[in-house]
Every structure is written in C-alpha cells, then in structure tokens.
C-alpha cells in the first residue's frame, strides 16, 4: 500500500471552515454527494467558489429550510443546503435567502420565486407510489405550490378493478422549481417522489428537434 493508494480509497478532509475560493476548490477534490442549494444558486463549482460560508442565508430562512454543511461534508463545509425530507423550500415570494447573500453565489437577479430551479421532482419509485397503484393519494400534486402547472394528473383506468381511475402525478420540468414540498409530503417511509438535479438526459437537446417535428 503506498500513499497514493491509501488516500485514493478514502474520504479526504483537507480543510476546515476557514477557507474558500476558487483555487482551493480545484485543489481539494469533491464531496461525493449532491447538495441542493438555495434558490438562485450558481452551478455547483462556481457556487462553492463564490459562497463565502457566511451563513447569512441560513439565518434569514424563516422556515429553517437551509442548514450549514459541517465537517462531514468535506469541501462543502460551511455552505448552505436543503434536505427536502426535513424541511423543503416553501418558496417565499420575497426570497429572503437571496437578499441576505453578500456575494453572487445566489443570483440577485432572480426575483420571481416561481422561476427558481433548485432541481426537478421525479417519481423515483413507480412501484411504491400509492397513486400509481390506484390509491387516492396524490398528496404531491395537491401540496404543490404550482399545482396544475408543475404537477398535473394523468388519468387512466385502474387495471385491476376497471371501475376506478389511476391519477398519475406527472411533473413538468418547465414549471417545477425543485422546492421539494412534494418530496417532504410523500406519505411513504422511503419517498417515491424526489427532487434530483435538473440537468439530466440529453443535454445536447437532440430530442427537442424530434419533439418539434412531431408537434
């Protein structure tokens, strides 16, 4: 076992709480997890560089949605993040977190909370989702602040009884802000709807061409 091998396998802590800045980010490697950042956050690399770990957004969040990453979060230590299952973002119309941010880590030009994009909700467990089994749940739909826009119900016949409807919650990326209220409210032990980063799928957008052709 040599030094390189030893370090490569592990979780590497190189800095604590007192450092920041773009140069160090490159130097220090990355944490393994995905962090959901406050509304208007820059892309993750730039956010880590721009965030000065002042904690002001956390202080001004009226719902305690935002918490500070600690030492276990490695490189992200001292940065704000959201755990939707604990407290989701309740989409304050005046965006106090952005107002509190002294740098450009949170985009000050974002003024319409409905345009924020923390991530996008998706049904991650279709087998467990109660609504998809025909149970009249659809809690994620009804608690959605952008009900009928970000989440709509797709209706089809329940295949076993042939007398009922399956109300399938369908999430629309164009409207979903990733506030996570749906993930928070899901009644299952392991939530069937989760917010994931918005960048996914075919980033080059080839299928948009296809979609335009069809429509």
């Amino acid at each position: 076992m040599d030094r390189r091998e030893f370090i490569k396998k592990g979780f590497v802590i190189t800095a604590i709480g007192t450092v920041g800045g773009f140069s160090l980010v490159n130097l220090m490697g990355r944490s393994r997890e995905i962090y959901f950042r406050p509304p208007g956050a820059l892309p993750e690399d730039e956010f880590l560089a721009a965030c000065i770990r002042c904690g002001k957004c956390v202080q001004d969040c009226p719902y305690d949605t935002l918490v500070l990453a600690d030492i276990r979060d490695g490189i992200s230590v001292g940065t704000p993040y959201i755990t939707f299952r604990s407290v989701p973002c309740y989409m304050c119309e005046d965006l106090p977190c952005i107002a509190a941010c002294p740098t450009d880590a949170l985009d000050h030009s974002l003024t319409d909370v409905n345009k924020m994009n923390i991530g996008t909700a998706v049904i991650t467990d279709r087998e467990a989702c109660l609504s998809l089994n025909g149970i009249r749940c659809e809690i994620c739909y009804r608690v959605c602040p952008l009900i009928d826009k970000a989440i709509t119900l797709n209706k089809q016949e329940q295949a076993i009884t042939h007398r009922h409807t399956v109300f399938e919650p369908v999430i629309h990326k164009d409207f979903c802000t990733g506030c996570g209220i749906c993930e928070n409210a899901c009644p299952l032990d392991e939530t069937a709807i989760r917010v994931i980063p918005s960048e996914r799928g075919d980033k080059a957008g080839h299928y948009f061409y296809l979609r335009e052709q069809q429509s």
């Binding site: 025909g134 149970i135 749940c137 809690i139 076993i160 009922h164």
Partner: peptide
C-alpha cells in the same frame, strides 16, 4: 376489500393508513 361493492378494493390515502 375487493368484494365490497362500494369501493371494489381501493382506498384513499386515509384508508390506506
């Protein structure tokens, strides 16, 4: 209860819990 005529086996979320 699939044999009950009123609902034929389905519930709402309150009934589920």
């Amino acid at each position: 209860d699939p044999e009950c005529w009123s609902n034929k086996g389905l519930n709402c979320i309150k009934g589920y819990f």
